[in-house]
Design a protein around this nucleic acid. Structure first.
Lengths: 169, 169
DNA sequence: CGTCTGAGTATCTAAAAGTAAACTCAAGTG
DNA sequence: CACTTGAGTTTACTTTTAGATACTCAGACG
């Protein structure tokens, strides 16, 4: 009997299929970064872009969507606005990443890593991430609390504290 | 002078903004898993669902989209079909994850982890990942090749072997 | 005071997603 | 041999996103 079957063994219902899926951190994260362009905007921020025109130019994304996405990322606290001033021009806003935005790096590095492995350009990656201190390549890894590297196949998902079943209907 | 500025110092053009973005592993991964429902389907596979009706029921996703997404995931080699047979019923297809699909776990765990941190249900997560062997909680971490834990802010992105500028136009 | 520029809005069209229900198909059952 | 079931497909309609262009707005400059 697995961890799921233990949960509600009294009902005949499989808890995986009858569970309430409204409390899901994956779905909630996707509400914030799951729209088209959002993750690519963050990519450009990490690569060094900060101005509206930078994003527009390098992404080729429609201006109205860009404005909407940037506004949302600021509202969510993933980006913040500062001002910059080119000599002879007036002050204009620019976008910088916040610590909350930095915490999305592992997720996006995960996407990057998968693409590097399975859909790479024959010449290799166009951009690589490296550790500022030692210059070594950086990647994402699964680790358990005790610090051991873990392979995806050795992970099991189990009901957490907020697990609940869907109400009948 | 940073690693970007070194690349094409002869032109006055900022290589971040003039670069060719068509070779991007993040964008390519999003082509496969960036559509609505796709990542949520994978979530359900990890939680133990495998049948068409399982996904339909637990996700509440339209059948036509579900069929389209499943077909694409199989074409991409992220899921594979096997057959199952309930007693007294004929054989039917089910969907199982492949090693290539397993390699998406770090990316999705990254999303999960961010959601757990910033958009958590007050009661906590509904589902948690744990190491099958030791039972400890599993998370994703950034590490450099030398094995040291790395913080997102200590990473820099630098041009890789396939870096190139957009052709003028 | 007219012009230029970066940072947006506004508006309109096109594509994709959501919703709902009917239809197909093949094997197993009464 | 009609009936059921899981796994889809097809069709029809609505709503939501995406994309392309045109327009606005606030200084700085001449």
């Amino acid at each position: 009997m697995d961890a799921w079957t233990e949960v509600l063994q009294d009902t005949g219902m499989d808890p995986r299929l009858g569970r309430d899926t409204s409390n899901c951190s994956i779905a909630r994260t996707l509400e914030v970064v799951g729209e088209k362009w959002t993750i690519l905007i963050l990519r450009e921020v990490w690569y060094g872009s900060s101005r509206f025109s930078d994003f527009e130019r390098v992404l080729g994304c429609p201006r109205n969507l860009l404005a909407t996405r940037l506004r949302m990322l600021v509202e969510e606290g993933i980006l913040a606005t500062e001002t910059y001033k080119e000599p002879g021009a007036r002050s204009r806003p620019k976008y910088v990443i916040t610590p909350k935005g930095m915490d999305l790096v592992p997720a996006v590095m995960g996407l990057l890593q998968w693409g590097d492995r399975y859909r790479a350009d024959p010449e290799g990656p166009a951009v690589v991430a490296r550790h500022r201190e030692c210059g070594a390549h950086v990647d994402v890894q699964l680790r358990c609390e005790s610090g051991h590297p873990v392979q995806a196949k050795d992970i099991e998902s189990v009901p957490g504290p907020a697990f609940r079943m869907r109400s009948a209907g």
